[in-house]
Write a protein that binds this DNA or RNA. Structure first.
Lengths: 197, 197
DNA sequence: CTGTTCACTGATCGAGTGACAAGCCAGATC
DNA sequence: GATCTGGCTTGTCACTCGATCAGTGAACAG
């Protein structure tokens, strides 16, 4: 690959990384391309050059976030499948999911911001990223009746993620800092034991 | 009270109601005072007249939302306290909380949007509204050890609310419409039985 | 070495944004 | 019934937004 092409690639990646941060922190509309450019160390015009529009940049950010993290999540969840006892296996699965949610609160924020409105971005995100992830996690819901699957899915996601998504609030409200390793492990344990008694 | 004063009050309430909607749907920055004014059936200038700034309007909206809903929630939760069996009482409590979350998804959206950043609005919301609510719900966590309280709190909120906060996404992803009465009751039942085995 | 390509910059556009101020007129006051 | 108060409208301010585009210069091809 060319030196120019490598430079191009690296710049795009810097912009996408900054975009993931901004979109997760502020939401689509409130995130400005100028701030994204600034965090990436360039100017705003370059964003429209690489990604035709803000919408396209958002999709690129979603691709980077969900693509990378889905692979990472699968890699971390599969060892749990080796556990023999099925209930303990599911608990391991859940604990690992909670740890993952703690390390990547931007994933939940991204999903929640996109999922609340019935617009084109939501449709795209569901069809492109959420459905594959959802179906991949069916291994987890093996023992759950068909009509309860969606409930369990969202209960798990909510129970695991919310405390990390509102970490500043939790710190101020309860004094507990959910970013501490100890708190993460405790949360993982509580969620796992609640969902699999 | 004067006719003018009544008119004034009613107008302010219309604006606040529109503001609650907009802030919950779009977040603070992405919600525009012009859209709020339009939904309230007036013009943008009137907002600055009644509420000096957008920040003040946001606080007024939070006051209306949390104030009214905390009272309403307490009214709906206290009957559950009459149940004799302590575990069943807690389950009733949780079921009612889930129903409440289903009817008022804007509460969770509001809380989540405010709680993710460590800014002045978050501090104000915690000190003014969240802490009182949090402490009032201590009746619920009677049997829970001190250091697990925050975890249970956020697990309950997340498990109960997320599916309703991303209702459009849930509909498209799973085919289940979480706004249907049947789905709400099922969700309430699942959450209650999970959190109190 | 020469000419071309193309990642990148900086300026500018129209369409919003929140805050502000001057005027209007129904309703309160006397 | 004249006067005045104050809720409300309209227009405007400086500013930010995403998008567009001419211009620049280093890396490329021949």
């Amino acid at each position: 690959m060319n030196r120019r092409d490598r430079q191009r690639e690296e710049t795009r990646e810097r912009i996408v990384a900054a975009a993931v941060e901004c979109f997760a922190e502020r939401g689509f509309r409130a995130a400005s391309t100028r701030e994204i450019a600034s965090r990436a160390g360039t100017n705003q015009g370059l964003i429209t050059y690489h990604f035709k529009s803000k919408d396209e940049l958002w999709k690129a950010a979603a691709d980077a976030l969900f693509g990378s993290l889905r692979a990472q999540l699968r890699a971390r969840l599969t060892p749990a499948l080796e556990t023999v006892d099925p209930r303990e296996r599911t608990r391991q699965f859940i604990r690992e999911f909670v740890r993952f949610a703690a390390e990547h609160p931007e994933l939940f924020r991204f999903m929640l911001e996109a999922g609340k409105a019935d617009d084109e971005r939501m449709g795209w995100l569901v069809d492109t990223h959420l459905r594959p992830t959802y179906e991949a996690n069916d291994r987890f819901g093996a023992g759950v009746p068909e009509e309860l699957r969606p409930h369990f899915q969202y209960i798990l996601v909510g129970a695991a993620s919310v405390i990390f998504a509102v970490a500043p609030e939790c710190r101020r409200l309860t004094g507990l800092d959910p970013t501490q390793r100890e708190a993460i492990e405790r949360h993982a344990d509580v969620v796992a034991r609640l969902l699999v008694p």
